[in-house]
Design a protein around this nucleic acid. Structure first.
Lengths: 230, 230
DNA sequence: ATCCAATCTACATTTCGATGACAATTTCAA
DNA sequence: TTGAAATTGTCATCGAAATGTAGATTGGAT
């Protein structure tokens, strides 16, 4: 199930999309203006944003880059009647996963979405509550429960790193990938920064004597989160 | 390095693309007609096809579906001046990874290619889990299972060498090639270094009494990994 | 002014990976 | 057949580089 934000001022298209995507079983909200979109973006933390470029009160490109500054973990898809090369390039540079020119068949959008979801498995929304042994995770609440039954609050970054590792569990995630996905391609936190978050996360999962979840370092690669089933 | 086939009748665009992609270090051939494309497709087995739809002697869509019938392991990208919904849907249904409408900036193609290459590392990717007899390999996890059922962690170099040999199984891989691919052209580890990694890998695969996987040394050449099916 | 997340700095610790000595094996010429 | 030369196998060892960790510092929000 995806958490989708549609930003589209055309009544017709907007409602069709909303209805259709809901029909597929996704959580889906529809903003008709930039300001409304901003509110819903903050409130819902969508992992997929369908963005029109021509909006009444702002420009979809600008709006999208504001969103990107806040969070990196959502797929961005532009829908626009503009078919000029510059706009398309700009859109892709913001980090859009795709740019669909109107007019398009609903079917096209779906096919493109399917393709994205197939490759980008990591955008799948996780269940509200995740349980492994005594350990519990609530990503949306920024909370975990440790081996002693204590609820621990996670900061945004801690949570983002845990989520990244969790979605790719059993696979070594390179340091660079962590940095790129959490901080962005252009930011370079100092070397020890990532490790510090790992320390905190380890303190949490090592509180479980059965080690239902482990975070190992793969030297000269990065980190690997392992889930141990009984 | 990718093996690319460009199918495009416009001289200008075709040569620009070919030149550019070669500049990036890819192997790249350019067909100006459908018949030529068919020949080159069979000859080269490309893993990326850039296909124009309006061709002199055939239709790009038809041609692409013929290609797809033969092989599925290539990425397909359409470049076309046609912007009508039906064509686009048809293209995506054939399994196109993307459909770029002309006019487009070279930059757009590059950005879209980059995105595809980032997510679809699947060109080279081996299966998540590889099984031969009791032996198992998980390259992305940096782990193997030996003949006694023990999970053994592999270091980055051990894993890289195993992967190299595995991909070329049954073929002798020269020492120099191993060194070049793993260490880089400019580094020269002493002769015994490679052997040491082979020792570790042999300890692993010789734990299987059936010798499902063997690593033999080919004197004065290098090493050969053999897979023995029953 | 105060809090807390985020980041950085400095230092401790771990371990990977390279090396070289030596043993074992194969090759090939005499 | 034999033995020297070349190649490969194995082991213990060491240093550098990667990682672990505890605090200090920053900077924004309330």
């Amino acid at each position: 199930m995806l958490n989708i934000l549609i930003v589209e001022d055309e009544e017709n298209l907007g409602s069709t999309l909303e209805e259709y995507l809901r029909g597929l079983g996704h959580k889906c909200v529809w903003a008709k203006s930039g300001s409304e979109a901003t509110l819903l973006f903050k409130k819902n933390s969508p992992n997929l944003v369908l963005m029109d470029i021509g909006l009444p009160d702002t420009n979809g490109l600008k709006l999208a880059s504001l969103f990107r500054k806040e969070r990196k973990d959502f797929v961005l898809l532009f829908l626009s009647a503009l078919n000029d090369p510059e706009t398309k390039v700009e859109a892709l540079e913001i980090g859009a996963e795709d740019y669909i020119t109107k007019p398009f068949a609903l079917k096209e959008l779906i096919l493109r979405l399917e393709r994205i979801l197939k490759t980008q498995a990591s955008f799948e929304t996780l269940p509200e509550e995740i349980v492994h042994g005594p350990l519990k995770i609530w990503f949306r609440r920024y909370e975990v429960k440790d081996g002693n039954g204590n609820i621990i609050a996670l900061s945004q970054k801690e949570c983002a790193i845990l989520e990244l590792l969790y979605k790719k569990h059993n696979v070594a995630v390179p340091r660079e990938e962590i940095i790129e996905k959490i901080w962005g391609e252009d930011k370079f936190p100092s070397n020890r920064t990532v490790d510090n978050y790992i320390v905190k996360l380890r303190k949490w999962c090592e509180s479980d004597p059965n080690r239902s979840i482990e975070i190992q370092s793969i030297r000269s690669i990065g980190y690997k989160l392992t889930i141990n089933h009984e």
